[in-house]
Nucleic acid binder design. Structure first.
Lengths: 252, 252
DNA sequence: TAAAAACTGTGTCCGTTGGATACGGTGTAC
DNA sequence: GTACACCGTATCCAACGGACACAGTTTTTA
């Protein structure tokens, strides 16, 4: 199944189209957003593979085929669900510097992804971005507009941060502590294979210290923001001496 | 479809089990690895939703049900495909410092993910790691064992780097330049909506500079490694003064 | 050497899925 | 008022993952 790809034209119209004027015929009993919210509820509970057109229709008290009057197919429905589930970003805290804004931004989008575990799989393929998705992006770029970073670099920062948030939201499966499950599973696998994975065995030993308060989201975010801060500082220093904002990577 | 979850016990046996001694009955015509490689070829060409048991069986000249003698089901097949497609990591360049090693490591796993676009979707759900996946992890931890980072932090670095590589492998869809498609698509969407996305519009303006040689992988990787370097330096300075390796995040 | 046991690949069957299509009812514009 | 556009529904279909019983093949056991 998965009959063909997604209908980009209709999806774009659904994401960006205006409500439209008066129309003929009977009044629609549903809305695209209503359908999307029903799908979100199902996917939140049973994951993306538990989302069937039948179940969505049942939860709305309509027939399965009625949904196709609003949505071209299942793939487009998932795309619309994503746009609705991500929602609008909260307004930035006024007067905060770029680092505080990006820190806050990453944690917010992390929360959204964690609330909807299926969102990770839904964003696995290249897709048509919706208004909300662009609004989130706008916030990152706006936070960085004061720094010396170029436009392309600002977008790269957004890609970097959203990737980290999304990745960590997947690893943190809501139920227990962020790193606890991971380390426990690894410890079981490495046990008896210490000669094959010596460094891993050493790292998993309790004596390695620092496991308490381990939080992969905080750790990675702090590292990323540190790295961005270093670049911002370099740009600020270079701008006064007329240095062009060229390649600042450390590729050996 | 997607009949139930994956059979963790059989998958663990398939990933970690030994070849086993002599067995009764007719000799098997297939191998699990043969099946996995056939699946990889199909998924590489037509994506994960083009992967059906029927097609895998046809490409191996057997019946669909014959595959179930080797693999519990489709989900487990995908997991095995992932382990085979990722493969063993290349040996680290001898004598390289941790930064060079991690840089090299990230680019290598980025390449693997880019070669198999379906791998991103295959790693969307929490899974049972295989020997190869653990070997990749081992390399990161080994590279960092000389630094002052704790075991948990070393694992966090691995999560951070693999997340970035995987994320960028998705955005870079092999065909064209890494950031070109992205910016072109964004520009089209923002056009006519500059008042709604002002910062984004400014960032996408050609006058923003720096678009040339834009590479999101290089950019993010350099930022991450810069951030890790700062932590390593702080740990090295703190170790001589007896500072405990506590929280070094910058949460405001 | 004969028989039993274990394992293989195959054919048949089933429930569920996404989706196409044709139909009758319903509301608006001319 | 009437034609037309739109709605929800009922029916139908192909493709999918998988269960199950069966017949053939090889090794172990008696």
């Amino acid at each position: 199944m998965e009959h063909g790809g997604i209908d980009r034209r209709r999806l774009h119209e659904l994401l960006w189209g205006t409500p439209g004027g008066p129309r003929r015929g009977p009044r629609p009993t549903l809305t695209v957003e209503t359908i999307a919210r029903a799908g979100i509820a199902i996917a939140d509970a049973d994951g993306l593979e538990g989302l069937t057109m039948q179940r969505v229709a049942e939860s709305l008290d309509v027939t399965k085929m009625a949904l196709y009057r609003y949505v071209p197919g299942r793939a487009e429905l998932v795309a619309l669900m994503l746009e609705v589930a991500i929602g609008e970003p909260a307004p930035p805290p006024p007067g905060a510097d770029w680092r505080t804004q990006l820190d806050d931004w990453t944690r917010q989008i992390f929360d959204r992804f964690r609330r909807h575990p299926w969102a990770h799989a839904a964003t696995a393929a290249p897709r048509v971005p919706g208004p909300n998705e662009l609004a989130w992006l706008e916030r990152v770029v706006a936070a960085l507009s004061g720094t010396g970073l170029t436009g392309g670099e600002q977008l790269d920062v957004a890609v970097l941060l959203i990737g980290h948030a999304r990745n960590l939201a997947q690893h943190t499966t809501a139920d227990s502590a962020p790193g606890q499950d991971r380390e426990a599973a690894f410890t079981l696998l490495v046990r008896g294979r210490e000669e094959r994975y010596p460094a891993l065995a050493a790292a998993l030993r309790p004596a390695a210290g620092g496991e308490v308060d381990d939080n992969a989201l905080d750790f990675g975010l702090a590292r990323i923001l540190d790295g961005i801060a270093a670049l911002v500082a370099a740009r600020a220093a270079g701008a006064t001496s007329g240095l062009p904002p060229g390649n600042s990577g450390h590729r050996p």
